[in-house]
Amino acid sequence: MDLRLQSIGKSFGGQSVLRDVALELTNVQALVLIGPSGGGKSTLLRMLAGLEPPTTGTVTLEGEPLHYHDDDALRRHRARTGFVFQAHNLFPHLTATENLLLPLVQVHGMTQDAALEQIDTLLRRFHLSDHAHKRPSQLSGGQQQRVAIARAVAIRPRWLLFDEPTSALDPEMTAEVLDMIAELRAEGRSFVLVTHQMGFARRVADHVAFVGFGGIPEHGQPADIFDQPRTPELKRFLHRVLSY
């Protein structure tokens, strides 16, 4: 993906979260955002998804700026983006299959039959076939997240956005979800991931941005970010999170 952020600012009710953020990346497949809680990682990701307009500045994806004031353009952008939230992604009144079916039929205009066939293939590939007819309440947290990722993949998105997809899960479930993301990485899919799993970030990223203190104090190759942090903010952050 080619992604460019120009003088991005975001404030909520006078409280500014991001100030004059700039970033320019070309040909990145896996961008990972790390940083302290409340530092603006999720806000930035939601901006990329078209869920939250920036207060100032421009986001450009694949050479095209996102039009935050055009509701239809924004919805089209969201329809081409596979977004996975921290939790509660699935619609509880629908089965796993129906959760995947809804966007395919309603947003992407597929016929029911074609969509069901595609869903079947996808669920089989991710070893979720046994859960196809279960409601979210009958699935474990890890299974729910995997179904949510399958739904994000099913729409053939131009990119995937993950907002701390494992922070509500126990270690074992975390592993099963991260495995799935690693698999998508190996498949060549582009994505942006917000995570607190530093080991995984390092393994999967080809670019890491440290988001916090109102901006992006530092970004670069994972090896540089994790082994040779330059800014005191990043040094302190890594020292904190890696000490346990």
């Binding site: 919805r75 969201r78 983006t81 509660h88 992604n89 947003v107």
Partner: peptide, 21 residues
């Protein structure tokens, strides 16, 4: 819950579709 609206928005449903489905 707010998460339901948010998810519906994220997958590209319109307001009417969100109410309906």
């Amino acid at each position: 819950g707010k998460s339901q609206w948010e998810t519906a928005r994220a997958i590209g449903l319109t307001r009417t579709q969100t109410y309906r489905h």
